[in-house]
Simulated scan of single mutants.
Amino acid sequence: MSLSAVVKKEVHQSARSYSVAGIAFFFFLFAVFLAAIHWVPVPSRNAPVEQSRLVLLNSMRQSGVFFVPLLGLGIGYDAIAGERERGSLKLLLGLPNTRRDAVLGKFVGRTLVVGGVVVACYTVVWAVTVLSYGTLDFATFGLYTLLTVCNGAVYVAVPLGFSAGMKSRQRALVGAIGLYALFMLGWDALLLGLQLVLYGAQPPHGGLPDWFQLIGVFNPSTAFMFAARAVIPAYHDLTIYPHSDAPFLQDWVGFVVLLVWVVVPLVLGYRRFEKMDIE
């Protein structure tokens, strides 16, 4: 079995998952609902951008922020640990495939499934906005969809790294959920706590220092926001983040951070997996 065969196997297996179908269903409902009611956050309603573009971006953004990480978590945490527990991992590695083939094949295959869900969902959202406003904003739709698929790759890589490096699904799931909670909720709480310790309740005159803001960008959710702003100027009107002239706080840095969050978990998970006894 070649790497491409592993990818094909993972696509078929993941696409039939009930958990993936359930998350995708609610992802679809929420995104289409926001597009159908033409919802735009109050602070952004007076932005000098076409209403149709704001509705399209916000519908994709609000739904993707929550459901894409959740989809990646649900599809990635048992990729290898689950097969180890079921005893099918020995079969996969004996066909012959290397452990590198297994990790890369599972990553690519499951990322393709996440990408397929994103494309299908966002296509309907785009169709709803086209019917509502009569504008074919294909550039915004295409760029944001592609970025969201890349963001989905991050949230496949992180739990997959845990799955490769842990001996049980439970441990992989705990590790993946812990990072998910950190990205979604804990990161801002940690930054607030650090601000209170260093500066008190009120930030210093002139704003927080650049190094402090850089810690925030290390969160892949914030990095995704930076990357989106780098290629879609209208996205600035949906996000609030202090502007800085520091080279390491420019929008393009978001792409670097996202790439790091894909590569590092996979490499660390693979290196640990390579040394493990699969018995």
Rank of each mutant, 00 (worst) to 15 (best):
W126N: 04
V154T: 01
W211I: 08
V32S: 01
F67L: 04
G186I: 02
K8F: 11
L192H: 03
P247R: 15
K90F: 12
L95Q: 10
I80H: 01
V49Y: 05
S88Y: 09
Y180G: 08
V20T: 08
Q213H: 13
Y270W: 12
F212I: 06
G193S: 11
V32C: 06
S59H: 02
S14V: 08
F273L: 07
H38S: 13
L198P: 03
A31N: 02
V118L: 06
P209F: 11
S132G: 13
V65F: 15
F25D: 00
L182D: 05
L112F: 09
A201M: 09
L179T: 05
T148G: 02
G207D: 06
L71G: 00
N58S: 05
I278C: 03
P203R: 10
V20Y: 08
V262Y: 13
V108P: 03
K8L: 10
S14Y: 04
V154E: 00
T148N: 05
G116L: 08
V125F: 01
I37A: 06
L191F: 07
W126Q: 07
N97R: 07
V114L: 03
Q170S: 13
G109D: 01
R61K: 15
G254T: 02
P69N: 03
Q170I: 15
I23E: 00
F66Y: 15
V32W: 05
S132E: 14
V128P: 02
G200I: 08
